[in-house]
Structures are given as structure tokens and as C-alpha cells.
């Protein structure tokens, strides 16, 4: 099948603003349909809980359309995505932290997070990475948990 490939090439060749506008219209459509599906809209004189969500969705859709119709800018492929791989790694790091904080505890999670980026992504000297990651995770834990009494998740192990 060549359709997905052609679609992909089509997306890559679309101008930046046009694509953004189309995405905004799509997002607005989902927002609006969810508002209509789950919430009473009310009326002008008596707006219900779905009134503002629907109104903002309509505004977003309209503006998205305007951007899509008039917009230009470089094509998607022409945008430099050199940092994308790194960005995905970093987002993965955030997601890992969100997922692991409660099971691994704060100190271990942050040690792994900082250690991973320093030791593996940035290829710093293992000892330097270790010291930095250890110092940061333990130091910030002490500051926030012991001094500021923020209930940071503790780990199941003695670490």
C-alpha cells in the first residue's frame, strides 16, 4: 500500500501554518463534540456548563480555519528537526519520572533520570555523572522533604 507513504509525504510537504491550522480545526472539532456529548449547553441568557467549552471550541475552529486558509511558512520537512530525537528522550524522561515516582520513590527516580542524561546521553565521565546525580537527588530530597515538609514519595528500599 502506498497510501500511508503518500499521506506522509503529503503532510511533510504541507506548509507549516496550513498544517497547524488543520490540526487546530481537528482539535476544535473533538472539543466541541465532547462538549455537546457530555455537557448541557444552556442558552445565551442561561449558559450551562458546556457553554464556554463550546464557545471556545468554535473560536478555535474558526481561527484554525483562518490560519489554514491564509497561512504559509516553510514546509514541515523544511523545518529543522535536528533536536527532535533529543527532545523525545527528554519527554521520555519526564514520563518515566511521572510513572516511577510512586514505585521507586523520589530519590531513586531522580538519580536514574539525571544519571541517564549525564552518563548515557551526554557521555560524561561515569564518576562525574554519578556524583552529580547522587548529589542532586539526595540534596533536593533533603531540602524539599526534610526542610520544606513536601511529602515526596519515599522508596521501598533503604536508599
Amino acid at each position: 500500500m502506498t497510501t500511508p507513504a503518500r499521506l506522509l509525504r503529503g503532510v511533510a510537504g504541507t506548509s507549516r501554518d496550513r498544517l497547524a491550522g488543520i490540526v487546530l480545526v481537528l482539535v476544535a472539532t473533538i472539543m466541541a463534540s465532547e462538549a455537546v456529548r457530555t455537557l448541557p449547553i444552556g442558552s445565551m441568557a442561561s449558559p450551562g456548563p458546556g457553554y464556554l467549552p463550546l464557545a471556545t471550541a468554535a473560536a478555535l475552529g474558526g481561527l484554525g480555519l483562518l490560519i489554514a486558509m491564509r497561512g504559509g511558512g516553510p514546509t514541515l520537512a523544511a523545518l529543522a528537526w535536528t533536536e527532535a530525537r533529543h527532545a523525545l528522550l527528554l519527554l521520555g524522561g519526564c514520563a518515566f519520572a511521572a510513572a516511577a515516582l510512586n514505585t521507586l520513590g523520589y530519590r531513586l527516580t531522580m538519580f536514574l533520570l539525571v544519571g541517564f542524561f549525564l552518563g548515557i546521553v551526554e557521555r560524561k565521565h561515569p564518576l562525574a555523572a554519578l556524583a552529580w546525580a547522587l548529589g542532586l537527588s539526595l540534596g533536593s530530597f533533603y531540602l524539599f522533604s526534610d526542610l520544606l515538609l513536601v511529602a515526596l514519595p519515599r522508596d521501598a528500599w533503604v536508599f
Binding site: 519526564c94 552529580w132 513536601v150
Partner: peptide, 15 residues
């Protein structure tokens, strides 16, 4: 700096 900033973002938001 950046792994440290990332850590503080997570920490601050959680706090």
C-alpha cells in the same frame, strides 16, 4: 545544567 533543570521542573510541579 539541563538534566538538573528537568529534575527541578518535575520536583517543583509535583510539590
Amino acid at each position: 545544567l539541563y538534566p538538573s533543570i528537568l529534575m527541578f521542573c518535575v520536583l517543583g510541579v509535583y510539590a
